[in-house]
Design a binder for these strands. Structure first.
Length: 457
RNA sequence: GUCCCCAUCGUCUAGCCCGGUUAGGACACUACCCUUUCACGGUAAGAACCGGGGUUCGAAUCCCCGUGGGGACGCCA
């Protein structure tokens, strides 16, 4: 059996979205699973809508998600060029084959693909005009996911526009033949195009590739498939929001595929080992950003310290958190490691850590009122200020012991000091443990903040 | 309008192919536990086989019809 060759064939006409990423992913997984070749082909035949910016976004997004391509732009290969805009000569050559076989004709300056059969006219309700149809037998599509699908392809269609540019159906099939693509894995929206493509393959006398039409991703709210305009549709957005690519990939794997049983979070190596086309679901899946966020959190929790500090810094750079970036690296690291187990996503980081990097941090009025309403916070604050110079700041447990000792002297508990101390040093009631907070902020800063809070009472 | 695809908790899904399960898991939601806050974590609860026929001793599972959802019907890709 010959080596599997799959391709991801996006057109650079818009932002790279989640549906495209999933199609790319399933192709990539199948290539890796079978030891095949993953080809990236750029379908840029629509000169009006293409842009270099979108092209680069495709490269960047695939790279970010960890889907390297074996052949394609930038890496080359034996079947290039890999941009359709550079393959005109090949299309001319294949068009000649079709012409020689008597399978084309010209009308209104465009070249049509001619189906074989008797012609007749019929009024089309949808298009509100009379069209010419051809009496044909149904085209059979053998789909790896859906099984045998029959579709009537009974109208000639344009393969070269009147401006001389070839059309998607034509170039797509020509390239799949020329690049010896063995499996076509794409969205179900192409299932109705597949009959056109099968007829073209047959007209060229080329073997028809194995098809696998994967289910679509439906938008989270409202009807229809997810489109570029929908909330959460753009890969770029997740990159900007500091999502971990491996979490997004894991989530995407599970949208329309699963290894059977209960496994969800799993390393990509395991997915590659278990992935196969027949296990892909047949029904569309609705996008769920909560589940994605949860997956991201689960991955974030496991990121090794050094990498976490690095991605946290990168994220804060994106957010322009200058105070944090200007801080001492060792201090920055301590703050990030204190935050890692507590946050749900990198997005929370700027607000979550703001008070570590500035004395001018917001104080939550509701929290303040709540804290001040209970017990004798002012007295506790005074005791803390008085005792703080004697505290051992060398570790969280040392600080904990010190606070407990102070509390015991008053016949109180740790919990009587915690809320007011937290409010004083952070202005809020959420965050890392108060002992960690003290240790990382340091005695001087904690003392200053406690005193300032006391003065404001 | 025509054609094609699909149908299990609110959502993602296991189970279906090869009929017999207390129909399992995850996210979300609720309660409790853990706890120095907030999270994490743990436990528990609620929550589904779209409807109708058929085949069968027995149907989520096989067949048909309805309904619902999705897609396609471009000189876009």
């Amino acid at each position: 059996m010959s080596r599997v060759r799959v391709r991801f064939a996006p057109s650079p006409t818009g932002f790279f979205h989640i549906g495209s990423a999933r199609t790319a992913l399933f192709n990539w997984l199948y290539a890796r699973h079978t030891g095949g070749v993953f080809v990236l082909r750029i379908e840029d035949t629509d000169k009006e809508r293409n842009s270099e910016e979108y092209l680069n976004l495709i490269y960047d997004s695939l790279t970010w998600l960890g889907m390297g391509w074996d052949e394609g732009p930038k890496v080359g290969g034996n079947y290039g060029p890999y941009r359709q805009s550079e393959r005109a000569a090949i299309y001319t050559q294949y068009l000649e084959k079709l012409k020689a076989a008597g399978r084309t004709y010209e009308k209104d300056g465009a070249i049509y693909f001619k189906l074989e059969g008797e012609r007749y006219e019929v009024y089309d309700e949808h298009r509100k005009k009379t069209v010419t149809k051809v009496k044909v037998a149904p085209t059979v599509i053998e789909d790896q996911i859906r099984g045998r699908v029959e579709r009537m392809e009974d109208e000639d269609f344009v393969i070269v526009r009147s401006d001389g540019n070839p059309v998607f159906h034509f170039v797509n099939v020509v390239d799949d033949i020329a690049m010896e693509i063995t499996h076509v894995i794409r969205g179900e929206d192409h299932l109705s195009n597949a009959s056109k493509h099968v007829e073209l393959f047959k007209a060229f006398g080329a073997p028809v590739p194995a098809y696998a039409h994967i289910p679509l991703i439906l938008k989270q709210n409202g009807p229809g498939k997810m489109s570029k305009r929908d909330q959460g549709a753009l890969i770029e957005e997740y990159q900007r929001r500091g999502y971990l690519p491996e979490a997004l990939v894991n989530f995407l794997c599970l949208l329309g595929w699963n290894p059977g049983g209960d496994r969800e979070k799993m390393p990509i190596e395991d997915v590659i080992r278990l992935f196969d086309l027949p296990q892909v679901n047949q029904s569309n899946a609705r996008f769920d950003d909560k589940k994605l966020a949860h997956m991201n959190m689960a991955y974030l929790l496991e990121v090794p310290a050094d990498r976490f500090v690095a991605i946290a810094r990168a994220h804060l750079e994106r957010q322009g958190a200058s105070a944090a970036l200007a801080a001492d690296p060792a201090y920055f690291r301590e703050v990030m490691l204190l935050s890692q187990p507590k946050i749900k996503g990198l997005e929370e980081l700027p607000a979550y850590t703001a008070y570590f990097f500035s004395e001018d941090y917001p104080v939550d009025a509701k929290v303040r009122d709540k804290v001040m309403a209970k017990g004798e916070p002012a007295a506790r604050l005074r005791e803390l200020v008085a005792a703080l110079p004697t505290f051992d700041f060398s570790s969280d447990t040392a600080i904990e012991e010190a606070i407990k000792a102070l509390a015991a002297k008053q016949g109180l508990g740790f919990g009587d000091y915690q809320p007011i101390a937290r409010l004083a040093v952070s202005g809020t009631n959420v965050g890392p443990s108060i002992t960690g907070l003290f240790r990382v902020l340091g005695r001087e800063r904690v003392l200053a903040r406690l005193q300032r809070c006391l003065g404001a009472l």
